[in-house]
Design a protein around this nucleic acid. Structure first.
Length: 430
RNA sequence: GGGUCGGUGCCCGAGCGGACAAAGGGAGCAGGCUGUAAACCUGCCGUCAUAGACUUCGGAGGUUCGAAUCCUUCCCGGCCCA
């Protein structure tokens, strides 16, 4: 297999992309990867029914290993999910109930398979964890770990220093994850675990366990946490998380998130999140720096990442819709129709508008609220006063009557907009 | 179980009987400048409303002309002692 000859180039590439935060002995790891196709694993927490862009780095990295011939296992934590990983958290987690957990597992499993294909094997640690009794666990795993070491891990220490403290349950988490690694080593010959840098402590716990019980050398490699120059959390907006599931975050919004990427972050993101060769990334960045106003790098990033998650067709749709909203072209009924399914659609009846008016409200204000563009009538008035509201890309400053709204309809729809980024397609029925 | 400190708007955090819809900061929203960027400037940032009114400061009661501020009690959290 080609992996043999290219293993060191492969690791070099990873490291050039800024994907090696911590690792066990890189030389030994290179030898291991060069030897045969290796089985390795990455774990994902079943905290929701869909993964979000925070997990994207893991998925993409996994794919890099897959593409050079290694054999990935994706571990979804049916068992560990019941406990909660303290890593990177300042507060105790809420425990999920079993139904939710099962639901989440299924969602994530389907997602991973659809993104990475069936060469990825998804395993659930519930399958082996649930077979282990407390006494057995204490003897087989607990005996090999000293509390002194466990307390020294960053994830634990930072919580012990904080007011929130840490429960025994979460304290035990690393042993569960160590047991996973050991089990996968023993049963599946898995000798490498990948994860985010917050997983480093848990990974080394597993490596220790394997060494102590089996006298064998296992490996770990972590990627850094994605950060943003503006200090915000990667993958979160004020509206919430950017999910990978099209039901939770429509591909258009997903695409927009990356399109709005800060100049300072874009090179890094291209390297870490896309499979473009580094040479091509350098070329794109050169173009970008030449005329940053064209946002070539951001477009490339958004297109590549969206294609990976949602496919090429969605990339085209997202770009088409963006052209409608942000382009300077004239709006037509046809263009509006083409954004259906991308912009939320709001249907109101003439009767509703009339009713609002007879109740003494302004039709547009009440529409802004019912469409979800504004949170209250007060908010709607504020936005209007600040001339934040646009109808068909034309700013409106004052109240608009039901009659006038009707006159704005382009075919079946009218484009109602708050600020630059929030749109609704409004249909008025008889 | 005992003691003690605390629970204030999205978050942090001041207020500690009237001047409180509640300082300040952050986040957010909008506008300006731009490149659907950053930085910066301005405005907004409980609800309903013209003025003005109404509902908020962990929950429930109470004292008072008047409470986020005082009292009682309950709930929740930190720390200390057992």
């Amino acid at each position: 297999m080609e992996a043999a000859s290219t293993s060191s180039a492969f690791l070099d590439d990873l490291s050039q992309r800024g994907l090696c935060q911590n690792s066990t002995d890189l030389k030994a790891l290179g030898t291991l990867l060069g030897d045969h196709p290796q089985r390795f694993y990455v774990g994902f927490d079943p905290t929701a029914e869909s993964l979000h862009v925070g997990s994207l780095l893991g998925l993409v990295t996994l794919k890099r290993f897959l593409d050079v011939g290694h054999l990935p296992l994706v571990l979804v934590g049916g068992a560990t999910g019941m406990v909660g990983d303290p890593s990177g958290r300042s507060d105790e987690r809420n425990l999920l109930d079993e139904d939710t957990l099962r639901h989440n597992l299924e969602g994530i499993q389907a997602q991973v398979e659809s993104l990475l294909g069936d060469s990825v094997e998804v395993v659930n640690n519930w399958d082996w964890m649930s077979q282990v009794g407390v006494l057995q666990f204490l003897r087989d795993v607990g005996k090999h770990a000293t509390v002194n070491q466990m307390v020294a891990k960053d994830s634990v220490r930072s919580r012990m220093d904080s007011e929130a403290g840490i429960s025994y349950t979460e304290f035990s988490y690393m042993l569960l994850q160590a047991y996973d690694f050991w089990w996968l080593y023993k049963q599946r010959g898995c000798r490498l675990q990948l994860g985010g840098s917050d997983q480093w402590g848990n990974i080394t716990a597993g490596i220790d366990l394997i060494r102590r019980r089996e006298g064998a050398q296992a490996h770990g490699l972590t990627w850094p946490l994605l950060t943003r120059a503006d200090g915000q959390k990667f993958g979160k907006t004020a509206q919430g998380t950017i999910w990978l599931s099209a039901q939770r975050t429509i591909p258009f919004e997903f695409h927009q998130y990356f399109l709005r990427c800060d100049d300072r972050d874009v090179a890094q993101m291209l390297a870490q999140l896309t499979s473009l060769p580094m040479s091509e990334i350098a070329a794109v960045m050169a173009e970008h720096e030449n005329s940053p106003d064209l946002r070539r790098a951001q477009h490339k990033l958004a297109d590549e990442v969206t294609a990976f998650v949602h496919g090429e067709a969605e990339v085209r749709k997202a770009n088409d819709a963006a052209a409608v909203f942000f382009g300077s072209g004239k709006l037509t009924a046809q263009l509006l129709e083409s954004t259906l399914g991308i912009v939320p659609e709001v249907v109101v009846s003439q009767a509703d508008l009339a009713e609002a008016e007879s109740a003494g409200e302004n039709a547009l204000e009440s529409l802004l609220v019912s469409s979800g563009l504004c949170s209250s009538l007060s908010d709607a008035r504020r936005q209007l006063k600040q001339s934040a509201v646009q109808i068909n890309k034309v700013r409106v400053a004052g109240p608009v009557s039901a009659e006038e709204i009707k006159s704005h309809m382009l075919g079946r729809y009218m484009l109602l907009q708050r600020g630059k980024k929030e749109h609704r397609l409004v249909a008025v029925t008889a």
